[in-house]
Structure formats: structure tokens, C-alpha cells
Simulated assay, not measured.
Amino acid sequence: MSIMQVITDQITVFSKDNKPCATAKPGEVLLFKTLDCFSNRIPDEQTTMADLDYSYGFANPAAGPVYIEGAEPGDVLVVDIFDVEVADEGTIATDDHCGPLFETTGYRTKKIPIKDGMATFNEVSFPIDPMIGV
């Protein structure tokens, strides 16, 4: 059995000019490790978006890109996603200049525990619905 490639390089802009961080063969299984939408820069509830240089140079990172051997411009690639695992905690952050209710809120951060497929917000638990990212 071969060792699975782990992709940890992150991009924050989708562009044809992004250089591949890895090469894979058709059919090869890869593991992509990603960060949260803040690039894991909010470690606790005392850190808010006001503490960040929020220039969007780090927001919504995606792991990759990966070059597939033999792929040519115009080819259609099929990707099977076998699993999406999430961290044991999520982050919600508000600021004073964006979002649907920005006029009524300031900078706040809340950490949301996630366990057994459930998120808990202020003692209310609900199922999570993991997605592949941005």
C-alpha cells in the first residue's frame, strides 16, 4: 500500500495562474487538510476580527491546487470525495462593518463545540452539514 499524499498548501484566490503544490496520478487518493475561514487566526473568544489585519489575504483558504498527470486543457476531471471531517470546534465572529445586522453589532467571537455530528450554540444543539469549502 502506498503512502497517501497530504495536501496542506493553501490558496486564497482562485486563479488559472495558481501553481500546483503537488502532482497526482489519475485514481490516486489524496488527503486535503484545510483551515477555517479565518485561516485559524482566531484561537479563542477573546480574539476578535478587530485583532486581525482583515485584508482578505487570508480569508477562506482552500487546499491545493494539485496537478493531475495527463490532464490537458479542456479535459473534464471527476473527483470523488470519500469523507469530510470537521474540527471539534467552529468559530463565529461578528464585526462592525459587514453582515446582515452589522449596524447592531460590534466585534464578538464565539467558539462552537462540535461533537458526534452536532454543534452546540448557547445550549442549543443542531446537526452539522459539512461541505467541501469555499
Rank of each mutant, 00 (worst) to 15 (best):
V13R: 12
S55G: 14
A63Y: 06
L101V: 05
D17V: 05
D95P: 00
D95S: 12
E69V: 01
M49I: 14
G106H: 06
G99D: 06
P61S: 06
A22R: 03
N40V: 07
A87E: 15
Y107S: 03
A71M: 13
N122P: 00
M1W: 00
V6P: 01
F82G: 04
Q5T: 11
N122C: 07
D88G: 14
K110S: 11
Y107F: 15
I11G: 01
I7L: 06
A119C: 08
I3A: 09
Y56I: 07
C21H: 02
P73Q: 05
Q5M: 10
T23K: 08
C21I: 05
L101R: 08
E69S: 06
S15Q: 08
T34A: 11
Q5H: 10
Q5R: 11
I112S: 05
I3K: 12
V78Y: 10
T104E: 15
P61L: 09
P65Q: 01
T109Y: 05
T94Q: 01
G90W: 07
T48I: 11
P113L: 07
D36R: 00
T109H: 00
E123R: 14
T34Q: 14
T23S: 13
A62F: 08
I112D: 05
Q10N: 06
P127A: 02
D83V: 04
E45C: 12
D129V: 01
S55K: 02
L30M: 06
K19T: 12
V66Q: 01
D53W: 03
D83Y: 06
N122R: 09
I3R: 11
A63S: 15
K110Q: 14
E69T: 10
G57K: 08
